[in-house]
Amino acid sequence: MIPPGYFFILSVVLFVLGIIAFFFKRDLITQFMAIEIMLNAANLAFLALARSSNFVDAQVIVFFIITVAAAEAAIGLAIVLLIFRKKKTIKTETLNSMKG
């Protein structure tokens, strides 16, 4: 029906859009969202590959990826909140205390 190549192309497009979103945005939260987009694009590619090679286990692995992403989101957002509480801002261009 649908050639798997379509899914791949779509996933790559989404991935690159995620990258561009990351650089386009100036606050931590939306940049974080951009990262989530990339993660989802990867999931899509994963499932497409599973489908084309008929590998059911891949779905379980994607399930794990989503779970871990949830945990990561919880921690990531906690850190964002913490930074906001300390610095009163989440604009990335103001956050450079790690400067060498």
Binding site: A71, A74, I75, A78, L82
Partner: peptide, 16 residues
């Protein structure tokens, strides 16, 4: 994974 989620949960609470 369930342990990981618990760890993340506790971690987030402690951080915040």
């Amino acid at each position: 994974t369930s342990i990981l989620i618990i760890a993340a949960l506790v971690g987030a609470v402690v951080l915040i």
